[in-house]
Amino acid sequence: MEHSGKVAPIIECRNVSKTFKNKGNSLEVLQNLSLSVRENEFVVLLGPGQCGKTTLMNIIAGLEPATSGEVFFQGERVAKPNPKLGMVYQTTALFPWLSVMKNVDFGPRMRHMPRKERREKAQHFIDLVGLTGFEKAYPIKLSGGMRQRVGIARAYCNDPAVLLMDEPFGHLDAQTRYSMQDAIERIWSREKRTVVFITNNIEEAIFLADRIVLLTNCPTNVKKEILVDLPRPRDYVSRGFLKIREDISKIFEITK
């Protein structure tokens, strides 16, 4: 594990465990997981199965408590949702009764930012994700990919220090998924933020990540970390890309 050591991590999970108990049955989904993320780093959590990843994200976000262990954000313990952490969801968590514009400027509106200012801000991010002209549309009129773009713009518009993305492209078809990966890469290089991105897609992880954290399945824990030191934007069939892909595949076959 490579650590500069100089910069304090912006997010740090220390020995986080989570067990769900239900009438005598208990399911341990996170076991003693430790993880740190540096500022402006794009970290991808790559793991198989349906176990623990979303729960980990909710714990980092402060939406759910951990059974044991702690999460620190900018040196402070996370205990409740913090608007400095922005969330992009797996399914579209857009507010269906609000137009694209009103979804995107929701966060600033909750903080009572003056209308003109927040509209300009929202417009900036709507343009950035490529949805100019759809400001007045309701989510129901948009395609899956467009909805995820709105979700990304909404998270960005709230000025988060960290973006938490929970399999945001999991429900998209392959073609849309590639174009969304391009979009997120482009947006991220223009508006640098710390990103924690969950996926189960190896290609997606290598394309986006500065660092990939490989997770085990049920209970989820850190299996191995891989630094992706390839120039951006990345080429899916370059030698370096394929090499990392092979490494990860090997590791996962062993865990199977």
Partner: peptide, 10 residues
């Protein structure tokens, strides 16, 4: 999920 999203947005 929507309630969570709104809480995350402040």
């Amino acid at each position: 999920v929507l309630i969570g999203a709104a809480r995350m947005l402040g």
